[in-house]
Amino acid sequence: MLRIDCPWCGTRDEAEFKYGGDATAKRPPAEGDGAAFYEFVYDRGNPKGWHQEWWHHVAGCRQWLKVVRHTVTHEIRSVAKATDDVTVPPA
């Protein structure tokens, strides 16, 4: 069970959230070429370690959050607002 510390609502259980995947994928401009879109849609780091990821607090404030979580220990290092820049610990 993950406990996610929503910056708006406080610490809540993972059951209130929906996962939104790798938060480092950046949508290229609409006129971007195919390779850029391929990267955006399919190319993921899939790190065994710290992962930046989207979580949507659906059953709470309904905000998208940027979470830094470890994919082996499940430790959550930080939870930020969608627009915040976050730092990811070294592997």
């Binding site: 609502c9 809540r12 059951a15 059953a59 709470g60």
Partner: peptide, 10 residues
């Protein structure tokens, strides 16, 4: 106030 889900209901 807290928004949460109880028995799958928001």
């Amino acid at each position: 106030v807290a928004t949460t889900s109880i028995d799958h209901i928001t």
